[in-house]
Amino acid sequence: MQTVAVIDYGMGNLHSAAKALEHVAPEGMKVLITSDSKVIHNADRVVLPGVGAIRDCMAEIRRLGVDEMVKDVVKNKPLLGICVGMQVLLAHSEENSGVECMGLLPGNVRYFGRDLHEDGEHLKVPHMGWSRVAQSDHPLWNDIEDGSRFYFVHSYYAQCEDRSLVAGTCQYGVRLDAALTRDNLFAVQFHPEKSAACGLKLLGNFLRWNP
């Protein structure tokens, strides 16, 4: 039986992600919410969700050894990072006066600031709602029209230093990285589990992805 492990490190809403994965999982595939390193090690694919403050997220990730698990997982199976689960994969975040992250992707997580503008309009922060994502070629975008809207909610955004790893971008006052990928790893700033049909399609593509 195929299994998908959704890593539970006590931060955020795993239920939404798990329910959406169950909704699109092929028959016989099981979705497990877990922090057990053995279960994660034996899973066929792994999802790293996350919401809330990044300092607390990183503290729990280190305390539970999730960073080591993730580094191990990406050597040989697909991993999907979502929202803060994407941000923790970068090297550093400006949030909470500066937090060192896992460094699996080169780059930083920056604050939008309170004075964000576009076309003369003052933009709200957090960036909350449905924005278009410009895609680059990747199997996780299969059957999703380029420029489709996904649901975002965040005040900090990723900027990857290696532009060849960028799989999707979004414009919100700045050009932010909406999707990053490297080998077995795919990470998104938006919430596919809350992005209606396009989000479910992306999760379905992840469950069938064989990098």
């Binding site: 576009e118 076309d119 309009e121 933009l123 709602g129 449905w130 809207r149």
Partner: peptide, 8 residues
């Protein structure tokens, strides 16, 4: 191309 206004 910006953020869509929402209907809830």
């Amino acid at each position: 191309m910006g953020l869509a206004k929402r209907i809830i």
